[in-house]
């Protein structure tokens, strides 16, 4: 596909969570690894919002950090606009970095409290040498205006703003290097609902205005439903399902997706019958063998306990579940 902006293939990241060397020797323990992201592949098209959802420990943020180049993958490749991201080459990464930006969850932690708002927003412009002199000041004023603050706010410090306003500043900073792609890691989960609505609406307006592509990371399915075109569902570092947003909510293929949808409290009071959800997310250091979801799955079959399911094409995406493979010839080792 020519309109693919970002393509992730086989993205894997291990973290070494072993005890210190001496303890390992004395207690005869092996090294331990946590697989935060396990062979994750997806494509994001230009101008769309792709969302990654999952519960804590599903690897959402790890994937986001690898995509913006803050964390090096253990295996797999990331292609941005056709070019493979080369973590070894500083110059190549720098050229790419101008084109993508990130918005973080906590606007109280992501803005330097000792810097004035104007300097915070101007930093990417200065770093990439996009403008000089008085031009920078004008651009900062314009960006503040775009996100719904006033140009005079540039002289203030972050503590003078509320949570929602700070998130607007973070968005202005992300826009300042004129990126094409923005990774939003839980952009509204630290905010109250009425402020969340303001920020979500702003993000949509900006997308229309600047033709931005978003990767939205969230645990809130309603936010994801509202914002995205396509959705990837993560469970314990594995991508269990990818589908168009509408399709995912009306016709979930993977049992985990169905369980997540059932767990969302129903505001419409439709009296919809909910399947009771059981169990909790297992420890990612020792995920269950086979399909990681099998201990909680209502449709578990013998092969789920042994063989890790492969992604199978569905109507609008893929899903990794043995149920869907029934009838199709079984490819892998039996």
């Amino acid at each position: 596909m020519s309109d693919t902006l970002l393509s992730v293939h086989g993205l894997t990241r291990h973290f070494d969570v072993s005890k210190p060397w001496l303890n390992r020797v004395i207690e005869r323990d092996d090294r331990q690894f946590l697989t935060a992201s396990d062979d994750v592949s997806f494509d994001i098209r230009k101008g769309e919002t792709f969302a990654l959802v999952g519960e804590s420990g599903s690897g959402k943020s790890t994937i986001a950090k690898m995509i913006v180049g803050l964390l090096e993958p253990s295996a797999g490749e990331i292609r941005f606009d056709g070019k493979v991201m080369d973590f070894a080459s500083g110059a190549a990464m720098r050229a790419l970095r101008r084109r993508f930006q990130m918005i973080f969850q906590d606007p109280f932690a992501s803005l330097n409290p000792r810097w004035r708002v104007g300097d915070i927003i101007a930093e990417p412009i200065r770093t990439f040498g996009l403008m000089r002199g008085a031009e920078i000041g004008r651009e900062v004023g314009r960006l503040l205006d775009v996100v719904g603050l006033s140009a005079a706010d540039a002289a203030k410090f972050p503590h003078e703003f509320s949570g929602g306003q700070r998130q607007r500043i973070a968005i202005a900073r992300a826009l300042s290097s004129r990126p094409e792609f923005i990774v939003c890691d839980e952009p509204t989960s630290a905010l109250d609902v009425s402020v969340q609505a303001q920020i979500l609406n702003l993000m949509r307006d900006l997308q229309d205005e600047f033709g931005l592509t978003y990767l939205l990371i969230s645990h809130d399915l309603s936010v994801v439903r509202h914002m995205s075109n396509r959705i990837g569902v993560l469970y314990l570092g594995r991508l269990v399902e990818v589908a168009d947003a509408k399709r995912l909510f009306t016709d979930p293929q993977h049992p985990y997706t169905r369980m997540l949808l059932d767990a969302v409290p129903d505001l419409a009071l439709s009296g919809r019958r909910r399947t009771p959800v059981t169990g909790e997310v297992p420890n990612p250091i020792n995920p269950p063998p086979g399909c990681a979801f099998h201990p909680r799955c209502p449709h578990v079959m013998p092969e789920c306990r042994q063989i890790q399911p492969q992604s199978i094409p569905t109507a609008t995406g893929t899903a990794a579940c043995h149920l869907l493979g029934q009838g199709a010839p079984r490819a892998q080792q039996g």
């Binding site: 509320s162 609505a197 303001q198």
Partner: peptide, 20 residues
């Protein structure tokens, strides 16, 4: 209530209460 995104809604924009 209008500011809360739901699973069933199709509206393009959320109702917005200005200010905080």
């Amino acid at each position: 209530m209008g500011a809360i995104p739901t699973l069933t809604q199709t509206a393009d924009r959320l109702t917005q209460i200005p200010g905080s």
